[in-house]
Amino acid sequence: MTEYKLVVVGAGGVGKSALTIQLIQNHFVDEYDPTIEDSYRKQVVIDGETCLLDILDTAGQEEYSAMRDQYMRTGEGFLCVFAINNTKSFEDIHHYREQIKRVKDSEDVPMVLVGNKCDLPSRTVDTKQAQDLARSYGIPFIETSAKTRQGVDDAFYTLVREIRKHKEKMSKDGKKKKKKSKTKCVIM
């Protein structure tokens, strides 16, 4: 069974824990209790493949930012979460993405942009803004509501699919490099 290491990042209060708990335990946590770091595991079937999701729910508070490099190193894919009623959390996505790329030393890291709290009427981040940002990053965008469960499975499952595509691409690139290195030079 394939294991996928997913990391949920975003500013404090955007609903990272609520999304994760909704996926794992099928219930909505409405009281806000700032996370330092929590880890969850769940076995699911995605596109006919049974897999184990190892999900790291991270601290959004700035005082825990020193811990970010460590979990970013171990993560295979990242859910970059903002709240649709919090423009600052949307603007912060850029910083999370840049930090992930720096730590992973790669421009090509599996990510999904997630606009959470889409059940709320007080939207300050337009869907088109988020779609445009995701398009500019070359990553999928999904709106979710941890409260109603809308888009929750889709967000995590899409990230797994992005990781699969990335692994497939990397193995193809690896095979191309191996083929090239088999060419021999004969000096007579």
Rank of each mutant, 00 (worst) to 15 (best):
G15R: 01
K104V: 04
V14Y: 15
D47R: 14
K165I: 08
I36L: 02
E3P: 15
I187T: 11
C51G: 10
S65L: 09
E91C: 03
F78T: 02
A155D: 02
K167S: 06
K5T: 03
M170L: 05
S17C: 01
G12Q: 15
H95Q: 11
V81Y: 01
D57Y: 00
R123H: 10
Y137Q: 09
V112T: 08
G151S: 15
E63S: 05
E31M: 13
S39C: 15
Y40N: 00
E37A: 03
Q150V: 08
T35P: 00
V14I: 10
I21K: 03
V114P: 01
G48F: 05
G60Y: 00
Y137R: 12
Y71V: 07
V160N: 06
D154T: 06
D30P: 13
E37C: 02
R68T: 03
G115A: 12
Y157K: 15
Y64P: 01
I36Y: 01
I84M: 13
Q43D: 09
L79P: 01
G10F: 01
L53R: 02
E62V: 03
L159M: 12
D105K: 15
Q25L: 04
Q43N: 12
H166L: 07
K177P: 05
H27K: 14
Y157M: 06
F78Y: 08
R41T: 02
Q70T: 13
S145L: 03
D132A: 05
T74Q: 05
K42S: 07
N116L: 14
E98K: 03
K169V: 09
C185F: 05
G13A: 12
V186Y: 10
T20W: 00
F82R: 00
K169S: 12
K165R: 10
V125E: 11
R68H: 06
A11I: 14
Q129S: 12
G48N: 10
E91D: 08
P121S: 10
E3A: 13
V81K: 02
S136H: 12
T35C: 00
Y64Q: 02
Y64C: 02
G12A: 12
I139C: 09
E63R: 08
V112A: 09
C51Q: 13
L56Q: 01
P110R: 02
I46E: 15
Y157D: 05
S136Y: 09
G60E: 00
A66H: 14
V45D: 14
K88N: 13
I163F: 03
D132Q: 05
E62M: 04
E107P: 04
G48I: 05
C51Y: 11
T35E: 00
D126H: 08
G15W: 02
V160W: 08
V44Y: 15
R135N: 07
D33N: 02
Q61I: 04
K167I: 05
K175E: 13
M188D: 14
R68C: 05
C51N: 07
